[in-house]
Design a protein around this nucleic acid. Sequence first.
DNA 1: TACATTAACTTGCAATATGCAAGTTATGCG
DNA 2: CGCATAACTTGCATATTGCAAGTTAATGTA
Lengths: 111, 111
Amino acid sequence: MTFKRSCCPITNSLDILGDKWTLLVVRDLVLGKRRYQEFMASSEGIASNILADRLKQLEASCIVTRRAYQQKPTRYEYVLTEKGEGLKPVLRALVVWGQKHFPSKKVIPAI
Amino acid sequence: MTFKRSCCPITNSLDILGDKWTLLVVRDLVLGKRRYQEFMASSEGIASNILADRLKQLEASCIVTRRAYQQKPTRYEYVLTEKGEGLKPVLRALVVWGQKHFPSKKVIPAI
DNA sequence: TACATTAACTTGCAATATGCAAGTTATGCG
DNA sequence: CGCATAACTTGCATATTGCAAGTTAATGTA
């Protein structure tokens, strides 16, 4: 998505967030995950190339910051920006709707 | 998406809603649109085959109901179910985030 | 010194989804 | 009879996703 489809704020949001993986990575970040392997370990089983792509997109959209957490070799972790934190209400609304319509015991208290 | 990727409610929601078009169709329904040509007329320019597919998915997920609004020839319109109405908080959260981070004059008071 | 391991990616290719343009169907209207 | 309308459907090109394997730069271990 290299252009804005319209000036509707929902559309603008979906231009960035509208796929099956992006918001799951944001969910993991909200839950405190920061490193590649932590994202990979989530139960949905994201493919490595897709994760790398989504992290790049999220960084390009200023939703996460990539920063080195060690040298030799340099390795990076990801943290939410304020813009990224601002997505919590979206996640909360999805949790509420999902819990109502896909009943299960699972709860995500942190979001 | 023919299977559940996990039992996370966010994931379950995104299994249905996670693409660039589905929630825009829901938005149009919330705004009062009901007919094929009305959805086609939205400014994002959805392709006809994609719209037909999304309406089928939404019906299969019990988010919309398809019903005839005339005979000879029989023509159909779409309306939100209660489950579909339940998506308003998700749309509202996307509006808030979108308006904050993609500034413009556009407002969607109805949602 | 050599070898296995770790962590964060990247690559190649097959499978799936999307986008575009045109076509189909049933009917009313002039 | 021919054109218009509305709700789709079809064929095909392009783009995205998914899978498996590979790469890189170190560190710990035999």
